[in-house]
Design a protein around this nucleic acid. Structure first.
Length: 340
DNA sequence: ACTCCCAGGGGTAAG
DNA sequence: CTTACCCCTGGGAGT
């Protein structure tokens, strides 16, 4: 293993605008690792490293230039949108939001790659964040391209459709623990691969209206209303879409006196709840939904924050330990900055 | 404490 | 409009 010095640059931004600990762990993206308080993920053909201090976010990368990493982050984190301003807006129209938002600052929607987002959320059905993360990791390790290593961790790209079209894919994915989703991924990869422009078709849906994008997404096996809405919101710029699952439905009934009978989210319920929140929160309703949804998560760490040398798998990290490791690193960072 | 058992989980496709 | 689906985990019952 080689020791690599990372060169860090800073984006000056408050935790009220971006909270990496929340954004990267609230069930939008599933591949970010947190090792000794440093966030890392192979994205855009490089390994991106991030760490947050009160003054801002330090970023670094292995592969790719500094300028392009900054450009990538501005796009990925959607820094042109002010979460703080949106929070203020939602707080004015929604008393419940106002009450809840205090501990939930800095949550925003990531602008993810449509293909990765699609596959990730196919994996999310009837599943939990921890296992979804494992599945996404497995996809990269077994089918992605090697990018670089850092501190003993190897980083791989998220595999494009072409890497997932072998006839044996379903069996392989099943062996890797994907369960019935193995077939969904195989079929979806094949469909995208065979389309004239491949993933470009998915990217083009960013410019399409919501109904068009949704209809296109529903064509894929393993994609129903909920998954389609997640992809529309988190990869296709459909900021007003509120993905409605059982959990969101419960929130609507419990906290907003939304009247709906039954526990299951039928297509009608899906639409009614979505319309209800869009009506309340406006153009960026999907972003607001993410804030309140995060409030319901029991453990934001989801057991996937690790210390160097520890395997992600089979490791249970106590919340307190993780927190102390994180704050210790942040303090050390702050000292370093002060000395500079 | 440890094991066994069993529901249920941020949905979807198929009957 | 029900039901099965892969796998993992948490809680409860029992050792």
């Amino acid at each position: 293993m080689t020791v690599t010095e990372l060169v860090w640059n800073q984006i000056k931004i408050s935790e009220r605008e971006v909270s990496l600990a929340k954004v990267l762990r609230c069930g939008q993206a599933f591949r970010w690792k947190n090792i000794d308080g440093i966030w890392s993920c192979a994205l855009a053909n490089r390994v991106v490293f991030l760490r947050q201090v009160p003054e801002g976010i330090f970023y670094s990368s292995l592969g790719g230039t500094e300028d392009s990493t900054l450009a990538f982050l501005e796009d990925y984190l959607q820094l042109s949108v002010s979460a703080k301003a949106l929070y203020e807006q939602w707080s004015q129209v929604d008393a419940h939001f106002l009450k809840k938002q205090q501990d939930l600052q800095g949550i925003r929607i990531l602008r993810q790659d449509p293909w990765e987002c699609l596959v990730s959320f196919i994996c999310s059905s009837n599943n939990n964040v921890k296992r979804i993360s494992q599945m996404c990791d497995n996809l990269c390790i077994h089918y992605g391209d090697y990018v670089a290593s850092y501190n003993g961790t190897k980083y791989f790209t998220f595999p494009p459709p072409a890497k997932l079209v072998a006839p044996s894919i379903e069996a392989e994915l099943r062996a890797l623990g994907f369960g019935y989703r193995a077939k969904y991924i195989e079929k979806t990869a094949l469909l995208v691969h065979l389309s004239s422009t491949g993933v470009a078709d998915l990217h083009a849906l960013r410019a399409a209206d919501y109904d068009t994008a949704r209809a296109a997404l529903l064509q894929f096996t393993g994609v129903g209303p909920k998954v389609a809405d997640c992809v529309a919101l988190m990869a296709l710029d459909k900021h007003g879409v509120v993905p409605v699952d059982t959990h969101v439905y419960q929130i609507a009934k419990r906290d907003y006196k939304f009247k709906g009978k039954g526990e299951t989210v039928t297509p009608q319920i899906n639409k009614a709840v979505g319309d209800f929140f869009r009506d309340l929160w406006g153009e960026y309703a999907g972003w607001a939904h993410s804030v309140l949804f995060t409030a319901e998560l029991k453990d934001l760490g989801n057991g996937v924050n690790v210390k160097a040398g520890e395997a992600v798998k089979s490791t249970k990290v106590k919340k307190e330990e993780t927190f102390e490791a994180l704050t210790a690193t942040i303090r050390a960072d702050t000292r370093l900055i002060a000395e500079c």
